[in-house]
């Protein structure tokens, strides 16, 4: 080997060593836990004790045989309903806000910043504020409703309303994010499209429907995937605002897993539910990617 080859070899090794710490940490913090989840799912570990036995498929049996009453399906259904509401806020709300706040001057710049600020406030802090705003008796929301001559709403104690209250909180928190994403996407659309449409006599509404919406579809897809997954992971807002109640009406899937593991101490069962939850997220992500290859417009 000549000198030059040795030098190149050394460089390759150095480059590999650069990646090594991150890769090792990711193996320990992401992939090892996934394998460990599967292992725990075959034990009877209940966290109160250090010993455990392997019990084969017992926990999986529990999961599938009691599917009707072990709360997994219920909490998945609650989470999906939540996700639809949360996505409507970020995606539909985001695109409407982007239209409304899109003007480029100082006042609108300041207003955009104001709309985005909630995103940076910790969710637990935000939930704490809404806990007071939504209080049935003294909350200012109900006071404002009474000014309008409307009946008071039991935001947090009515099982039919509580999930909507969580959606209002997280919608307030993330609508500015959707707006910013759409604004940057809309800026990429060439003005020519709008000019030629205007020449053909298309009004603002038609321009929006036939030009803006199709040309921001990659952004919509991006938001759809990322917001769906982040909505499926919702925990903080529920934990602080409703604690999963009343009567389990806001017990989302992560809250369910948390309660199994840290309230019932059944980490064996919690592992089974975690695996199923993860499988669901993966499945949805893959399906959306496949579907989008055919249906999304990347021409903007």
């Amino acid at each position: 080997m000549n000198k030059r080859q040795i030098k190149i070899k050394r460089e390759r090794i150095a480059e590999f060593l650069c990646c090594l710490p991150a890769v090792l940490l990711i193996l320990v913090l992401t992939y090892y836990p996934l394998a460990e989840l599967v292992r725990i799912s075959f034990t009877d570990w209940n966290m109160l004790t250090l010993d455990y036995n392997y019990v084969g498929l017992k926990n999986w049996q529990w999961f599938f045989e009691n599917a009707a009453n072990n709360r997994f399906l219920d909490s998945m259904w609650i989470t999906i309903r939540y996700a639809v509401g949360a996505m409507a806020a970020t995606i539909a709300g985001g695109i409407l806000f982007a239209l409304l706040f899109g003007r480029m001057n100082r006042l609108f710049g300041a207003m955009r910043a104001a709309v985005v600020i909630p995103r940076y406030i910790a969710m637990s802090t935000s939930a704490m504020i809404f806990l007071f705003l939504m209080n049935g008796e003294y909350g200012v929301f109900n006071y404002l409703l009474s000014l309008l001559g409307l009946e008071r709403v039991n935001w947090l104690t009515d099982g039919n309303i509580a999930l909507l209250s969580v959606i209002i909180l997280t919608g307030w928190h993330s609508i500015g994010y959707g707006m910013m994403i759409y604004l940057s996407s809309m800026q990429g659309i060439s003005r020519e499209y709008y000019e030629s449409a205007a020449l053909d006599g298309a009004g603002k509404l038609q321009q929006f429907v036939y030009i803006t919406i199709p040309l921001v579809s990659p952004t919509t897809l991006f938001l759809f995937v990322t917001q769906f997954i982040s909505a499926m992971k919702v925990f903080q807002a529920v934990d602080v605002l409703t604690g999963g109640g009343p009567y389990f009406s806001t017990e989302v899937i992560v809250y369910h897993i948390y309660a199994l593991a840290f309230e019932d101490y059944r980490i064996d069962r919690a592992s089974v539910v975690s695996i199923m939850f993860f499988a669901f997220i993966l499945l949805i992500t893959v399906l959306t990617m496949k579907w989008s290859d055919k249906n999304v417009n990347y021409d903007a």
Partner: peptide, 29 residues
């Protein structure tokens, strides 16, 4: 270096695994 793309795939794959799935084994660790 050889294996770079494979390792990078490992990193990208980690983006798909939310902490809400791995917290139980991390806690026991």
């Amino acid at each position: 270096f050889p294996g770079r793309d494979l390792l990078f795939l490992l990193v990208i794959g980690a983006l798909m695994v939310p902490p809400q799935v791995t917290f139980i084994p991390l806690y026991t660790l």
